[in-house]
Design a protein around this nucleic acid. Structure first.
Lengths: 118, 118
DNA sequence: CGTTCGGTTAAGCATGTGCTTTAGTAACAC
DNA sequence: GTGTTACTAAAGCACATGCTTAACCGAACG
């Protein structure tokens, strides 16, 4: 049921790098050419390109060549896929804590008890 | 402003592995001992333990020894940190598309024009 | 006591990742 | 045409990751 993870793998892996997150942050504010993405980074341009292709492989970024310049832009849908997975986990444990709450309430009828907390 | 990323690194990296996500999924439904987390996995127990320590290092999982058994549980707060980062990106590009929308509306007063699209 | 169970540590290895430098190619400027 | 700009492709290298097996430890059980 949960084996369809090839793109969540790529997605989270892409986001696990500060350089790549910086690129996504930059692109959230609008499209940019490769060289502009690379300029602030402490690495060579080929290295930046490699990060970029990881982002593209993850579906987070889309790019298109215009003349000799490659313009990059984010693909919002990909990010929301990651968000959905996280959300699904939260729903699960919230429901569980909810049931636990119910259970503790039934215990509450008899006295004070707790096994929860930071 | 965005250089405080040491734990987003660990967090996304931890989630980038299907084995580790499976563990988180399992733990979302309730605490479990190490051996129960490891049982369904196609790998040795030490390998599973290593994944587990990645999850702990990322702050996603907390564990405690009870007798000779180690009980593991998720730490919901960590997940929401990842969610927040994703959300922040969405807010940024939504605001940007919003401004673009405004801009296109002002153009609309004069006629039909577009520079945006797939 | 000794044995099994659950977990832990350590060493070793194959592969992957993140960078580098070097050497291109295509578009634009002159 | 030549030269510069912006990107791309390829090779190579240092280090990290993900797994293995073997050996070990303390808790529980007889």
């Amino acid at each position: 049921m949960l084996n369809r993870t090839p793109d969540l793998d790529r997605l989270f892996h892409a986001l696990a790098d500060p350089t790549r997150r910086a690129m996504v942050e930059r692109l959230s504010r609008g499209p940019a050419p490769v060289s502009e993405l690379a300029r602030p980074l402490p690495m060579s341009l080929p290295a930046a390109m490699q990060h970029l292709s990881v982002l593209e492989a993850a579906g987070l970024v889309r790019s298109e060549k215009v003349g000799r310049v490659r313009i990059c832009a984010i693909t919002p849908a990909a990010l929301s896929q990651a968000e959905q997975w996280i959300n699904a986990r939260r729903i699960e444990w919230e429901r569980r804590l909810d049931r636990l709450g119910d259970y503790l309430e039934t215990l509450d009828a008899k006295g004070e008890t707790d096994g929860q907390g930071e």
